[in-house]
Amino acid sequence: MLQLERVSSGYGRSPVLHEVSLEVGAGEIVALVGANGAGKSTLLNTVMGLVRRTQGSIRLEGRDIGGLATPAIVRTGLAQVPERRQLFGTMSVEENLRMGAYARRGDVAGRLAAQYALFPILAERRRQAAETLSGGEQQMLAIARANMAAPRLLLLDEPSLGLAPLMVVRIMQEVARLRAAGGTVLVVEQNARAVLAIADRGYVMENGRITHSAPAAALLADRSVQDAYLGGAGASSRAAEARIRARRAAILAGR
């Protein structure tokens, strides 16, 4: 669905991404993990047209979207849940959701109803200012707001940031649910363990370059990935991989 080929980008004169190639297939959850400052957010913002691509091609279902402005990119069916949520704090929950549909209007009422059904807590809080929601509720609102654009592909930037462990699991379950409902997701995370538990495949980014790319379970079991991003826990073995699969099944089953 989304294909990046040797994409470079950056800010002014400082390059950040160096020939990044990455692919997300329809119906997949793909994780992008990496340390602070690796360039993960820059990659998502380059795809959204907020950061200028200096080289390479960005295709959505074969069409090059690298030269489009952000509104046009949103209309092609991409939406991003930005890092730290970036809600419109003093606007109501419902107004935030309506903003999500700004570039792709048409059946806004239907989409609102769908998001309220998906996140009943938001329906309860629809008239409340977004900044008065709890962190977990704010993350749900940020996801629902992006869904309002009816995206074919959702880009999530660190959805677990600042959330308690239970809420992290909850959010990951929501992401898995989006995919189960036919969505496709590219999710950036510091919390590699949480995201790789629900992802199909993962990429590791270091200093603006992709260094590893493998099925999620294999990345979780990979020694060097464990050392760098999972606190070195566990040994690389079939047993570890089996444990991971069991945990993944548990999360996806909503337990």
Partner: peptide, 17 residues
């Protein structure tokens, strides 16, 4: 609403298209 959204958070407003 978009004018208000820009006033609150321009970057996020751009992201909404």
């Amino acid at each position: 609403r978009a004018v208000r959204a820009c006033a609150i958070n321009r970057q996020a407003a751009r992201l909404m298209g």
